[in-house]
């Protein structure tokens, strides 16, 4: 377990996700995002997992459920983010049983943040937490590498996100209708996949509202036009 000396924050700050990986580790060099909209939140992600330049998995599911209507997008080390998500899923399940009511997105974000902060020297995990709950509606939290917690109207992450800061800033609108919101996420991820070598494959989405979780899938061979499932 040897960290390279390249693990420091480079001037552009972006390739840090790659540098922090342990040797031979599977990397989610990724494009992930989550947005708030009129009725809740939408999470979106590409499906590429790489080890170096080799695509270890071309149909990865980077959208992970930690409670019925609280999900997260994972970027960074696949092993680290899976381990963290598993812990949070357990904690939230316990919380729901003990208190007899579903946890809030804030609760989930707090637990995620504590794990990422307390183990910042061991983890390479860039997470976006998005969820819907009755009290707070749809909320999006971003937890970047150091383990800080940021509430945002929408969040983008992973290596591919650098290519879509401009797109998202220019096209983002608050309180969109569901169809427009889905389209926004799709167009943004299409750009990220186009320009980022570490992102690719299908586009997955999860829509979280009072009605629960709804999965979307869009395929590259139909230019992401048709919704499967």
């Amino acid at each position: 377990m040897e960290f390279g000396t390249s693990g420091k924050l480079s001037e552009d700050g972006i390739h840090l996700d790659m540098d922090r990986l342990k040797k031979g580790e599977v990397n989610l060099g990724t494009s992930i995002m989550a947005i708030t909209f009129k009725d809740g939140v939408i999470l979106g992600a590409d499906s590429r997992t790489t080890t170096g330049a080799y695509i270890a998995n071309r149909v990865t599911d980077k959208l992970t459920r930690v409670h019925d209507t609280i999900w997260c997008c994972r970027s960074g080390s696949a092993a680290d983010t899976q381990a963290v998500a598993d812990i949070v899923q357990y904690q939230l399940g316990l919380f729901a049983m003990n208190s007899g009511k579903p946890p809030t997105t804030q609760t989930a974000a707090s637990i995620f943040q504590e794990i990422c902060y307390a183990n910042k020297d061991k983890l390479s995990a860039g997470l976006i937490i998005a969820g819907w709950d009755e009290r707070h509606g749809g909320q999006v939290y971003s937890i970047p590498l150091g383990g800080s917690l940021h509430k945002q109207p929408y969040a983008i992450g992973g290596s591919g996100s650098t290519y879509i800061y401009g797109f998202c800033d220019a096209n983002w609108k608050e309180g969109m209708e569901e169809a427009d919101a889905v389209n926004f996420v799709k167009e943004a991820l299409k750009e990220a996949i186009k320009w980022d070598g570490s992102s690719g494959g299908v586009i997955r989405m999860v829509v979280l509202t009072a009605k629960g979780a709804d999965r979307h899938l869009y395929l590259p061979d139909t230019d992401y036009k048709i919704r499967h499932t």
Binding site: L9, S10, E11, D12, G13, I14, L16, S142, P144, S148, H150, Q152, T162, Y165
Partner: peptide
């Protein structure tokens, strides 16, 4: 501002 390297990542901190 909260920067991420040279990226102006969070503008409402």
């Amino acid at each position: 501002l909260a920067s991420y390297g040279s990226l102006a990542r969070f503008t409402d901190v």
